[in-house]
């Protein structure tokens, strides 16, 4: 089964994070501190820098992440 990640989201789409185990530990902890964690509701606001960066919204906070991290954040496929 193909997993869906933040990278595959449409602009404005909302979903739930279900898995982040693909990331290395240091990066995952850092993300956790910012509220990016399994079960969190995430919305893709836009992609910038020629799709290199993803701006997402979690708990009313806008956060900017890189594409390589976005593809490691697995979300629920609605």
């Amino acid at each position: 089964m193909q997993y869906k990640s933040i990278r595959d989201m449409q602009i404005g789409e909302e979903s739930k994070i279900i898995d982040m185990t693909n990331m290395n530990n240091i990066v995952r902890h850092r993300f956790l501190d910012l509220g990016i964690a399994p079960d969190a509701q995430v919305r893709l606001i836009k992609r910038i820098n020629f799709n290199q960066l993803y701006i997402i919204e979690i708990d009313d906070v806008e956060i900017c992440i890189r594409q390589k991290d976005a593809k490691n954040i697995i979300i629920q496929d609605n």
């Binding site: 240091i26 990066v27 850092r30 910012l34 806008e62 900017c64 992440i65 991290d69």
Partner: peptide
């Protein structure tokens, strides 16, 4: 480098 970047806006 571990090359990580995450930023609150």
């Amino acid at each position: 480098t571990s090359n990580q970047f995450v930023l609150e806006i």
